[in-house]
Amino acid sequence: MENREPLKPYLLAYPGPLRDQLVAAVLSGQKVSTTGLLAEYEAEKEELPPVGERSALIDSDGREVAVIELTEVRVLRLGEVDLRHALDEGEGYASVAEWRAGHEAFWHGDEMREALGDPGFEVDDETLVVAERFRVTERF
Rank of each mutant, 00 (worst) to 15 (best):
A43M: 00
E122T: 14
E64K: 08
D124W: 14
E69C: 05
L38R: 01
P119V: 07
D118A: 07
L37Y: 04
W99I: 07
P49N: 13
G52K: 08
D20P: 08
R63H: 15
E44S: 10
L48P: 07
V136S: 03
V96L: 08
G120C: 08
D59M: 09
T71S: 08
R113A: 06
L83F: 15
E80C: 00
T71E: 10
Q21L: 14
E72A: 13
E64T: 09
A25V: 09
I58A: 00
E126Q: 11
E40I: 14
G120H: 09
L83N: 04
V129W: 01
E5C: 08
A66E: 10
R133P: 05
S33K: 03
V65P: 13
G90N: 06
A101V: 11
L76P: 00
L116G: 06
V129P: 00
E98V: 12
S55K: 13
V136Q: 03
E111D: 12
E44Q: 11
M112P: 00
R77D: 14
A25E: 02
D124G: 13
S55C: 05
Q21S: 09
L7C: 02
A13K: 06
V75K: 05
Y41I: 07
T35W: 13
R63T: 06
G109D: 00
V81E: 00
A94V: 15
